[in-house]
């Protein structure tokens, strides 16, 4: 058996594996990365908007509820933004480290922590439990950070 006869099927397998993840989301790796960055920015904007309301002294509860609901929904979708083959190197602006896929169990664990935090934030926001929202927001921010610390490339600046 020649080398190419072994290599060919292996290559096909690899391509199928890599593409499989992307195909699931219906996007190429680069497109998935770009979309992911936009989703992340959306989450950052929601966090910022809630934080500003809490600091304002007279929070607009309707706004807090809407943004908290948005965060809970996106926290549930988050793992789907990371198809295999959409990491650093595929898209220039992506800072998604390979360890997301090589240590996928740990990544999923961190994502679950975000879902828990965002769900509690939204529950307290919808219940108008103003006293708890501050701590919930902190916990949600800590969950964002907890994941970024392990799975995101550091800024060079």
């Amino acid at each position: 058996m020649s080398r190419s006869k072994v290599f060919g099927p292996l290559l096909v397998c690899a391509v199928v594996l890599l593409a499989g993840g992307s195909v699931a989301a219906g996007l190429t790796g680069g497109e998935a990365a770009k979309a992911r960055i936009d989703h992340m920015k959306g989450q950052g904007a929601a966090m910022k908007a809630i934080g500003e309301q809490l600091k304002s002294g007279a929070p607009d509860l309707a706004l807090v509820k809407a943004q908290a609901a948005k965060l809970e929904v996106s926290s549930k979708e988050l793992t789907s933004w990371f198809p295999a083959g959409s990491g650093q190197g595929v898209y220039a602006k992506s800072k998604a480290l390979p360890v997301i896929w090589t240590d996928h169990a740990r990544f999923l664990e961190k994502a679950a922590a975000l879902r828990t935090a965002a769900a509690k934030l939204n529950a307290d926001a919808q219940a108008g439990n103003a006293g708890a929202i501050g701590a919930d927001l902190k916990a949600t921010g800590a969950a964002c950070k907890g994941c970024h610390e392990s799975f995101e490339a550091k800024d060079k600046t």
């Binding site: 966090m47 910022k48 934080g51 902190k138 964002c144 950070k145």
Partner: peptide, 22 residues
């Protein structure tokens, strides 16, 4: 300025969008 998790925000970041603050 604001950090990427919106946990730490400068007192005037409220006048800018998340993107602009970043």
């Amino acid at each position: 300025s604001v950090d990427e998790d919106s946990v730490e925000a400068g007192p005037l970041s409220k006048f800018l969008s998340f993107d602009a603050s970043r």
